[in-house]
Design a protein around this nucleic acid. Structure first.
Lengths: 139, 139
DNA sequence: TGGGTTCATGACAGCGATTCTCACTTATCA
DNA sequence: TGATAAGTGAGAATCGCTGTCATGAACCCA
């Protein structure tokens, strides 16, 4: 039972408008455009309570701050280019999702998973080798 | 061409003896049993150079410090109990490994991936429902 | 074997991300 | 409207990790 506050709405609005998952710092910066006095601690507090409410999901990428995005955009994973560090969304059916709810040997009950790919995006792969006409049109 | 130092060996030895992936802090604590003056910065430096040499691999678990384990124990993933935070190793064939080297739509070339499951281990699942004396057989 | 040249080390300051604390403000409900 | 408990903002504190720098040790060559 969380209260409805301007700050909370500003944060949700910021995430809804974002083109990809944002760090708390980025949320803070953008939310200040709407609510100039909002504090960083407030952003962190709201992000974690929103996560508990299921309104946002946290995205954990190795060697990066925790990022947040609005929930309800379907199951998907992320790909990070090891060269330019850009994060891409990977959509489509996930083979690992079959294990959700399964019990693995040893009695481990799977409730969820996080899958992160790393590799080279089209532009960096081009730059490295020769050149081909691949377009990195991923969200 | 890295030099062979006592510290480096102590770190490798510590990881080889460990029952699971260790944080830099844990490696530091344990390595001090062998080499009492070893510094934390040295541990971090060696861990990353060993990682570059391919002697150890880094394990990134959400909401946890980076962990390290010796390389060459085959492709596997990790499971973290959301209750007791224990980390288990998941072995067996990995459906995602098929994508290694593949090029995803958008021209994303997959070089590697990290997969982390979270859920409840046997003992915590038991404790939640009934209670039984399951042993947390950490690998 | 000795001596010089790097590279590695240890100590610690510093940084970014996140959490904690505390006094103050405000949404909510009787 | 007023009480009250939850939420807020500011800043200190904490945690994981990296950078710096003087010192120490591994390696190469004579």
């Amino acid at each position: 039972m969380s209260r409805r506050t301007e700050q909370r709405e500003a944060i949700l609005h910021t995430l809804a408008e974002a083109e990809g998952p944002l760090t708390a710092q980025e949320v803070h910066d953008r939310a200040r455009a709407v609510h100039p006095t909002i504090g960083l601690a407030t952003v962190y507090r709201n992000l974690s309570s929103l996560e508990q409410d299921g309104a946002v999901v946290a995205v954990h990428l190795p060697q990066d701050a925790t990022r947040y995005e609005t929930a309800g955009r379907g199951h998907h994973h992320h790909f990070r280019c090891v060269k330019c560090q850009t994060v891409f969304e990977i959509e489509g059916s996930c083979p690992v999702a079959l294990l959700e709810g399964a019990t693995l040997p040893g009695g481990l009950t799977v409730l969820g998973h996080e899958l992160v790919f790393f590799g080279k995006c089209a532009s960096c792969a081009d730059a490295a080798g020769r050149r081909a006409g691949a377009v990195a049109g991923v969200a």
